[in-house]
Each structure stands twice: as structure tokens, then as C-alpha cells.
Write a protein that binds this DNA or RNA. Structure first.
Lengths: 213, 213
DNA sequence: CAGAAATTTGACCAGTTGGAAAAATGGTAG
DNA sequence: CTACCATTTTTCCAACTGGTCAAATTTCTG
């Protein structure tokens, strides 16, 4: 009769331990992927024994599922806030900035997602084809209307979003490479400010209406 | 007294089997990463037994090492060909195009590399900090000189290269997501042409000298 | 064809893996 | 203190893991 079975009325200690497990699991899964991670590793990182961990989560997959779904919410939030009634340039600039901040502040979440994608999204394909596609379709329409009104330059809105995702998440997913190439000085805390400045220039110059220049 | 020990004078059958193993291993490693892949899986995919596979490669790591190094050569070739004496815009456009073609034609290699990066490049960190950094430093200088001459707009050359890598590799590494979001029609063979058109627009409009417009 | 060399197989092994069961511990309301 | 609950630990297991080895088989060479 373990309490987690009913999943209702969590005690303080349950919440704490579950959080510790999820925190540790994020560390491990984001680096090694689902198959490459072991329960022992996660339990170690969470400071408990394997059976103890399995008292709070039914299985390795259950932990991963929880991480992935709660992460997807976090991940899609910035796009949801893209406001059709706002000014296109500030809206897109702020979306870009927020995505880059997420790569900086939640690199493990980004890598967890990247791992899932590399494996063909076995646990997330439904979300991608359902929720994500619907959201992107809607926002692409918004962007397209901005283009139709001549407020930003014409470009494929889907690929525009892809390129924002790719360029920002790159700083989380390929962090080792970025640091290695930039070296100790430029690869330090500066790198995100430099990236922000560069990416704003890249996207805005590519998106500003032609005649406005 | 197995022949592979000496590594010289390979027979036809040795070359064939090793190729089959590397081919199969690329399939597996690129999806599951190093830890997540098993020798059995690879042997199965290569149509042979595990001991037979281990007759040709000393260990799982040996296969992975071979794949990674031969892949890195392929991966860096386009950048090596960036010609300082050429015209900046055509040079960068052709670099962009070649990188996108590689994402299209060698998605498994891209994912193998991505997996290695996600894990913190345990097997490739030396190449990143050595060969890759040196190459990028050199090419960044070339790009900087183009900017100094006013032939392209000013931008951080390192982050420019990062954004080219990120946007092109995205179509290999996040292929599932791209397909899911674009849907069946736009996510088919078209997607690379659309991406090429979009990315050229993005980068060239961002890089063209301001006054030239 | 004989013989040697190269290749393939089957049996095996020690360590790891995800997970189950049950016993032991701890905390707390009566 | 005690009975009951949640929590933790100990022990265990069957499947899988990377890898070895000797024997059997196939292929090449003269």
C-alpha cells in the first residue's frame, strides 16, 4: 500500500524526494539519453538507493515521461506568447531572446529534448504531430499575416521558426563545441550576450521590410 | 592470429565486412548514442553474430572511434574549402548550401555527431579544441577581413558559423520534428528545397552590405 | 586436391541492468 | 506505549551487457 500508487495527497517528503529524483534524472537523461541512462546512476545522483527510488517512481520510463512532458510545457511557452496583436519586430525579437534565455538557463531540458528528437521521438511523436503542429500552424498563420501586411519581409514562416529554434538551442545542445571553438575568454559567460547580439542582427536584418531600409 | 590484428593487407572479405559493420553501427549509434547502443544490435543489423563482429573490431569503442573520426573529416571538408580569395557572398552561400546538402545526404553522420556533443564530446573533445578550433579561427579571420573590406555586413564570424551549423544540421538532427510540424505534403522531399530557399534569404539579407541595398 | 589461413560459430563468463519482495526502520496519532 | 502508516534497506532475480575462447567451417593458394 505505498502512497504514490494512489497519486493523491502527496506528503511533504514525497514531493521533496520526487523533486530530487527528477532533478537527478534530468542530469543523467539529458546527457546519456533514455537507453544510456541507468536507474543506479540516477539514484546515486539523487542520493538514494535504487529500490528507494523505485518506491517513488514505478519505472525508469515513468521518470522519463514525467520529465519530458513537464519539459515540453516549458519549451512551448514562449511560442504561445507570440502575440498576433503586437508589433511583428518586437514580438519576434522577444521570442528570439526568450528562446536564447531558455537555452542558457535550461540547457539540460534542451538536451533532453534533443536526445528525444535524435532517437526519432519515440515518446513524444504524438505531441509533435498534435499539440506542437497545431500551435506552429497557428503561429505561422500570424507570421504570414504580418508578411502579407508588409510589416516584415517575406519568408517561409515554418522555416523561420525552425531557424530560431535551431540557432538558440544550439547554444545548449552543442555547448561543448561552442566553448571549445570560442576558447576560454570568449567562451565564458559572454558567449550568450554575443550570441544574442549576433542573432538579433541576423534575424532582424533578414526580416526587416526591404523598402524600410 | 587473426588478420585484422596487423591491420595491413586487407582481404576483400575484410573490407566488405568492416564496411557492413560500420554501416550498421552508424544506424545504431546515431540513434541511441554510444551507451545506448549494443553490440548485439549492431551485429544483427550487419547480419552477423556478435563474436563474428568482434573478430573485425576489437571493441564497441573501436567501432565508434572509427565512425567518429572518419565522420569528422567529412564534416569539416566544406569549411576547409571556404576560399579566402573568392567572393564573400558566393563563398558563404555555397558553404551554406553544402552544409545543408550534408544534412540531407548524411543525416546519420550528423546525428552521430550530435549525440557526441550532447554527451559532452567525451571522444572528440581533443579534435574540437585542436583541429576544429584552429580551422574555425583561420576561417573566422578570413570572414573578418571580408567584413573589414566592407564586402559583407559586420557580424561576429564565430557566431555566424555557429548559426550556419545550427540551421543546417537542424534538418538532420531534428528531422522528426521538422516532418511532424510540416505535415505530409510540405514535410516530404520538398523540405530541403524550401529550407535552402529560406536560409539563403535569411543569411544573405543579413549579410549583404547595408549601403548596397 | 591438400594444407594453411581466414572466417564463422557456439558455449561460456563475469559484470550490469531494471525491477520485485520482503523485512526493517521511522514517525506519529491515539 | 502502541498500532499504523510511510519510508528505507537488504536481498534477490532473470535478462542483458561487452567480451573471450576453442572448435568448426569456409576460403584461398599452390
Amino acid at each position: 500500500m505505498p502512497a504514490p500508487a494512489r497519486a493523491r495527497a502527496k506528503t511533504r517528503i514525497q514531493r521533496e524526494k520526487q523533486d530530487a529524483i527528477l532533478e537527478a534524472a534530468l542530469d543523467i537523461f539529458s546527457v546519456h539519453g533514455f537507453r544510456g541512462a541507468t536507474i543506479d546512476q540516477i539514484a546515486d545522483a539523487a542520493g538514494m538507493s535504487k529500490p528507494n527510488l523505485l518506491y517513488y517512481f514505478a519505472s525508469k520510463e515513468a521518470i522519463h515521461r514525467r520529465l519530458l512532458t513537464s519539459m515540453l510545457d516549458l519549451w512551448l511557452a514562449p511560442l504561445r506568447e507570440l502575440d498576433a496583436t503586437g508589433d511583428p519586430i518586437p514580438e519576434l525579437r522577444s521570442y528570439l531572446r526568450r528562446k536564447l534565455e531558455m537555452a542558457r538557463d535550461f540547457p539540460r531540458e534542451s538536451r533532453l529534448f534533443a536526445n528525444e528528437m535524435l532517437q526519432g521521438a519515440p515518446h513524444a511523436i504524438d505531441v509533435l504531430e498534435g499539440e506542437l503542429k497545431a500551435l506552429v500552424d497557428a503561429k505561422a498563420e500570424v507570421i504570414e499575416s504580418w508578411m502579407a501586411e508588409g510589416r516584415i519581409a517575406r519568408a517561409d514562416p515554418y522555416h523561420l521558426l525552425f531557424s530560431i529554434w535551431a540557432t538558440t538551442q544550439h547554444y545548449a545542445d552543442f555547448d561543448v563545441q561552442v566553448r571549445a571553438v570560442l576558447g576560454p575568454e570568449r567562451g565564458g559567460a559572454r558567449r550568450f550576450e554575443d550570441a544574442a547580439r549576433y542573432l538579433e542582427g541576423l534575424f532582424l536584418n533578414g526580416l526587416l521590410p526591404r523598402r524600410a531600409q
